[in-house]
Nucleic acid binder design. Structure first.
Lengths: 203, 203, 203, 203
DNA sequence: AATGAATGAGGGTTCATTCAT
DNA sequence: TATGAATGAACCCTCATTCAT
């Protein structure tokens, strides 16, 4: 189907744009550079995007969805804290692919600061992130894996902010050093663990 | 001879550049716009900066130092957890001035992602941030204000990442809503409090 | 696809640039002026030349090749001194076209004085000019048209320098007066003529 | 006297400007560069020259007068061909000082091509150069040092053009190689020598 | 008389976008 | 549908010049 191809092509372009941004920064994303990255001509871009603004948005959206997909994948599956922790490692920028995604997201975040539309969308996504996390925490409380004396909403805020900051600060380190750095975060999860869960684990 | 305080003028310019970046984004920082912001002509910029790159760096540095100054001010003073918490509120982007500073810093962070020099500097600052925080935690442990059963280094990592993420995510909210949002973080500090401190506080 | 002869277009541009230099001097060759001269927009220049430096070089090269072509045309053909003299008139700046070429060459020569690369090339071309002239003189000696008691290499130096100076000094005169001025040079050629040739001519 | 100092200062400035042009080309002669070369401030230039155009002209004039002075010095003195030849070597660009002068003159010549006023002046100087040379040749003929069967006017044209071309082409060579190159020109002078003079010389 | 900060026109260059082919 | 040549606005920067000190 033509429409399928069309959408597929758009996604390829969004990804190529994301690659450029991740590699050389937002300023490097020019139409010429993108055409070269795609191995196509300049004019073809206008068949898929009305202007550059839309390309930028598509690239941001692409990276954002990649990350969102990983997060929801990590959040939906696990019923225990110990199942959750390794899944999280697949979200954080610990390999080339996730590094790329977070780099683009970092650009998106700052770009959104002065683009009202994007900002609004970003805000909504953030809010739903808090809620989703809060529910996850409630589930883990219900199943007895984490402590009951914490407020799921407050803790959700902390968790999301912590993950945000961790991801951003990881980008500053060379890829090779990041795994080690992430290990530090483990004590945070452990502090959430319920006594019952600890006892069960001990057995 | 006209008497002009060169350094002061440079700082004014850096601040003006920061204002532009904070208001309308990095792309909006053109020499024309900056000249207009300063109420001076285009050419005058070259008396104080050899090129635009240096203006950008100066703007970033200015914002960074503003934040660093607030942080060190918050970190040096307090001897107790309860003294520390309100000081932190002066660091986070909860008013127009700090909002401006963090916005610029957000741009700096993403800009650094594809500028090796800046990245290195950013990395070093981050590292020293971790160390400074770790020492602060050790002091608070020594004075009995926070629990002894936490690892200061690991917790420092968490604290810095959390503050980073919190600051970034606060920028997404309207200024008016932020204070409320920050309250959520309080439980994190409380979880660090030692029993002795709690007892003392209770009294 | 638009069909455009890239090389031809480049040459057109080089010639237009040469026209500007010849008409109003090197300083007058701005990108805006060149675009106007070509009747095209500013941006189109960058499709054919990576920067202005290359445009300048192309203009210089164009004029230089025009002159070189005329010289080699004059030098290759003739077997006698009498055939050579009229051909030389086609090289010297005696009409609008050759005037343009020499004007540009004059600019090239002075420009090269402070541009090492160009200087080296200029030096090599000058050297080959000496050698080519020396060979021509040797041929004319061999065929008995010029005197045998002159040193072809030394005379070649004199001939090239004389032509250089003559061309330069002609540029100072109005076009209309130049033909008359060039006639003065005839006695120089006659001084080279062999007695045998003179006798033959007399018959 | 103030006026003397004023004129002296103007000459110093003209010379400094000439140095810049000789060293790095016409484009390098900016007001800032000249001020630096002189070790003075920007504004002081306007006390001596109303605008840059006048500085350029002064620099050209300075170099031109240097050369003219050497030429008239060489032309006035000698009564014989053998006295004339070594004096000529002091005119040609064979040392740093004369190299500088000729470099500036080369720039002047091309600059004049598109500046009517300068062109007119240049033309007049050239014309007087021809006449002066013709007179010199007539004197040498009268004193029997050069052949009588040459036309002084025609030969003067050749001599001036040859010297012009020689000087220009010498600038292309490294200073060290120029003396050797100039030796080639000697046969030209010898061809002018009268038989009587040759006989006298032989004795 | 001397300074150098300030001006703004104009330089070369890059860019997203358009459109004839 | 695909091409890439063409456009011209806007970029950063340099420059001769002016003028308050």
């Amino acid at each position: 189907m033509k429409i399928v191809d069309h959408d597929k092509r758009r996604e390829e372009m969004a990804e190529a744009a994301a690659r450029v941004v991740a590699a050389d920064g937002f300023e490097a994303l020019t139409t010429r550079r993108l055409a070269k990255e795609l191995g196509c001509s300049l004019g073809v871009l206008s068949h898929y995007f009305p202007n550059k603004e839309e390309i930028v948005l598509a690239a941001f959206q692409w990276a954002n969805q990649c990350i969102a997909r990983r997060i929801s994948h990590a959040a939906k599956g696990p019923l225990t804290l110990d199942q959750f922790k390794p899944l999280l490692l697949q979200v954080l920028p610990l390999n080339k692919q996730t590094d790329l995604e977070w780099r683009v997201r970092a650009h998106l975040n700052t770009y959104a600061l002065s683009h009202a539309r994007l900002m609004k969308k970003h805000r909504e996504e953030l809010r739903s992130g808090y809620q989703l996390t809060a529910e996850l925490l409630r589930d883990l409380q219900a199943s007895g894996h984490i402590r009951n004396d914490i407020d799921p909403d407050e803790t959700a805020g902390t968790v999301v902010d912590l993950m945000t900051g961790l991801a951003m600060n990881l980008l500053v380190l060379p890829l090779a050093e990041r795994k080690q750095r992430v290990a530090f975060i483990d004590h945070y999860w452990e502090a959430l663990r319920s006594e019952r869960s600890t006892a069960a684990q001990a057995v």
